[in-house]
Amino acid sequence: MTGEVSDVTADVTKELTRFQRYTQGLVDNALNAGTKVIIVIILFFIGRYVIRFIRRLVRKSLEKSKVDNGNINFIDATVKVILYILLIGLLAGYFGVETASIVAVLGSAGLTIGLAFQGSLSNFAGGMLILLTKPFKMGDYVVVSGVGAEGTVDDIGMFYTRLKTVDNRSIVVPNSVVSNTTLTNVTFYDVRKLEVIVGVSYKSDIDKVKRVLSELLDKESFVVHDKEKQIFVNELNSSSVDIGMRFFVKKSEYWASKWQILEDIKKEFDDQDIEIPYNQLDVHMDGPATDSSLRSE
C-alpha cells in the first residue's frame, strides 16, 4: 500500500513539474513577444521620424533646385510610400519573417492590386509622365481637351490633378487623362496676345479709326510695346465695319487689360465722334406704292 502511494505521489510530482515548466515557458514566450512588440513599436516611431527627416531633406533639395511645387508634392508622396513599405518590411523581418517571404508576398499582393486597380496605376504612371515632361506647373491655366475641363492648376497629386476654375470651383482630373490628351497651357509664356474686335459705322473714316486706335494703344500702360501691334479691318458686316486689334499683354493682366481697353475704346470713340452702330436694317422702296398694289398684296 505504501508503495502505491509513493508511486502516485511521484506521478503527481512529475506532472506538477511538467506543468510548471510549461507555464514558465508560456510566461517566457509572452515576455519575449511583449518585449519584441515594444521594441517594434519603438522602432516604428524611430523609423517614422527618420522618414520625416528624409522627406524634409528631399523637399529642401528640390526647392533649392527650383522644382515646381506640384512636382515636389508628387515626389514627396512617392518617397513616403516607398520608405514606409521598406520600414514595414524591416519590422516584419525582426519578427523572424524571411525577406524572401516578404518579397513573395509583396509580389503577389502587387499583382493582385495591379489587376484590381489598373485605373489608379495608369493615373500614377500619368503622374510620372507629368513630372518628367513638365507640360505645366502649379499656377498655370490649362485647358484639357476631351473632358472640357479648364482652370488654374491647384495641385498635382500622385493620381489626380486638381484645377481651380474662375468661379472658384474645384475640378479633379485623372492624371492618365491629362497625360494622354491634348492639353493647352494658356499661361505657358510670360505674355499673351490679346485680340479685340470693335465695329464702326460704314460712314466712319477707316484711316481715322485706325489712327485713333493706334494712338490709344501707344498710351496704354498694360500693352507690351516691344511686341508687334496690329490694327486691321477684320470683316465687313451687315451693320458695321469690324476693326481688329492684336497686341501683347502680361499673362497675369490678360482679363484686366481686355476690360480696360474696351472701356477706353468707347470713351475715345465718343470723344472723336466715331459711331459704334447697333444692328439695323435699311429698307429701300424703288417707287411710290399705290393703293391698288397695297390692296392686292
Results as ranks from 00 to 15, higher is better:
M285S: 07
S65A: 15
Q272P: 02
P277W: 06
L86W: 06
V27L: 14
E275S: 10
G287H: 10
E195G: 11
I42A: 14
D207V: 03
V37P: 00
A149M: 02
T2P: 15
S293P: 05
V191L: 08
L16E: 10
W255F: 14
A10S: 13
T17Q: 10
A256Y: 12
V153I: 11
L86E: 10
Y189R: 11
D207F: 05
A30E: 03
S108Q: 11
L16G: 05
L106E: 04
L91G: 03
L163S: 01
G47M: 01
F222G: 06
G119S: 08
P174K: 09
I39T: 11
F136Q: 05
V50Y: 07
R211T: 14
V200W: 04
S214M: 13
I46W: 04
I54N: 02
T165D: 00
G107D: 05
D68F: 10
N279I: 15
V37T: 04
A109K: 09
K137C: 14
L262P: 02
E15L: 01
V196C: 08
V97M: 00
I206H: 07
L62V: 00
R56L: 05
L281P: 11
E195V: 11
S145K: 08
K227H: 09
G93D: 03
I156Y: 10
V178K: 02
T23E: 14
Q20A: 15
A256D: 07
E253V: 05
N180M: 07
F74A: 08
R48M: 11
Q280D: 12
G127F: 14
S65M: 13
G47Q: 01
G114T: 01
L131C: 08
A33V: 10
D273M: 09
H284D: 13
E253W: 06
G89V: 01
N234K: 13
F95K: 10
L111V: 06
D264K: 07
N237P: 12
D155H: 01
G47T: 02
K60T: 06
R21K: 15
D218L: 04
A125C: 06
T133M: 10
V27H: 09
V249D: 01
S122A: 15
F222H: 06
G119Y: 10
K266W: 00
K267N: 03
E275R: 14
L294T: 04
S292H: 05
V8T: 15
Q280M: 13
E228V: 15
F159N: 14
M245P: 11
D167Y: 12
D155S: 07
A149T: 02
Q20W: 14
T9V: 13
K80S: 07
G287R: 15
I102R: 02
T23F: 07
E220H: 15
I46V: 14
V40L: 04
F188W: 12
F117D: 06
Q260Y: 09
Q24A: 12
G93I: 03
G107Q: 00
I88P: 02
L57E: 13
F222R: 07
N180L: 04
Y202L: 12
